[in-house]
Design a protein around this nucleic acid. Structure first.
Lengths: 162, 162
DNA sequence: AAATTACGTCAATAGTACTGACATAATCTC
DNA sequence: GAGATTATGTCAGTACTATTGACGTAATTT
């Protein structure tokens, strides 16, 4: 079990290796666009939660406004993301992916999804659920609300259309 | 299941959130030492694979020699890591953690291990093995040799002593 | 003896992040 | 309505991690 001093080094390391290779796939594609991992994260969440505001995005990414600024500006300038004035609160800027943005987000997600499917292999639904449950439990409890598993939680909202 | 366009967005996002919070624990401790995540990774692998060479470390971390240089130098200057001339090949520098280095590596691993245990909860050995198997399968096949799960693979080597 | 290897180092650059400060417009509160 | 607060944008300065390219040295291999 590799538990020296009661420390779970095995899974600590596996997480490092898994994440290292998991992010290496999109990194290659991003290089062609002159984008980095930060652009990927922003585009991913704008694509997944269309209409989310700048403040919400900052909260999900856990970065500062200043860090987001450059990256978001580039995505807007290259026509991957558009900003719309918030309907309720006109101070807010709702972020939406363009068709071009959605295409890139999808292209970036594809190899990652392929890797996940390959890793799950012929695992059944139970095993898949177990992996999901473990990963979710790794997230800080107070931040689990950020997770949008796509099932019950978002059933009411018309995500994805715009 | 959140599979739009056949893409497994659920697990893609879960991996992001899980890793984000997984790394946030040690980050706080590192700040006290003026160290960053790079120092953590180097220290971790030196601690886990005492005697590994610079070239091996570069291969595991997937960074360049120049990137490693500064970080490694700081760890050596602060007496967390020592370099010993390779016994077989005197060009090589074998890296070993000092007592101080081992203590820091352990302090950094502790909250991560705690998080993992909490996430596994009352899961049995089967579930734990499943998570391990999934994470291992996420790693590029040609790089899986780098993984040192601590069971059979290292039984012969006297890791950890120096 | 010559080529290769392992490592160290110098210089220049890029990407991502930070803190702090300030500006603007919109909304909320009294 | 005046004032406070909020959402966002932006400027300046800094730090950390990473990159490529080049060069040097010592040790090993051919």
């Amino acid at each position: 079990m590799s538990v020296e001093d009661g420390i779970d080094f095995a899974i600590i390391e596996l997480l490092f290796f898994a994440y290292r290779d998991f992010t290496s796939d999109p990194d290659q594609i991003l290089a062609d666009y002159g984008f980095g991992r930060a652009h990927h994260r922003v585009l991913h969440f704008v694509n997944r939660r269309p209409g989310l505001t700048v403040a919400e995005l900052l909260d999900v990414l856990k970065i500062t406004k200043q860090s987001l600024a450059r990256v978001l500006k580039q995505l807007i300038d290259t026509d991957h993301v558009v900003q719309l004035q918030g309907p309720r609160d006109r101070r807010q800027r709702e972020l939406y992916p363009t068709a071009k943005g959605r295409a890139l987000a999808l292209a970036l997600a594809r190899p990652q999804s392929r890797r996940i499917h390959a890793a799950l292999g012929d695992s059944g639904v139970t095993e898949r659920t177990l992996v999901e449950r473990f990963l979710e439990a790794m997230v800080n409890p107070e931040l689990r609300a950020q997770i949008d598993v796509g099932s019950a939680k978002m059933s009411g909202k018309s995500h994805g259309e715009h």
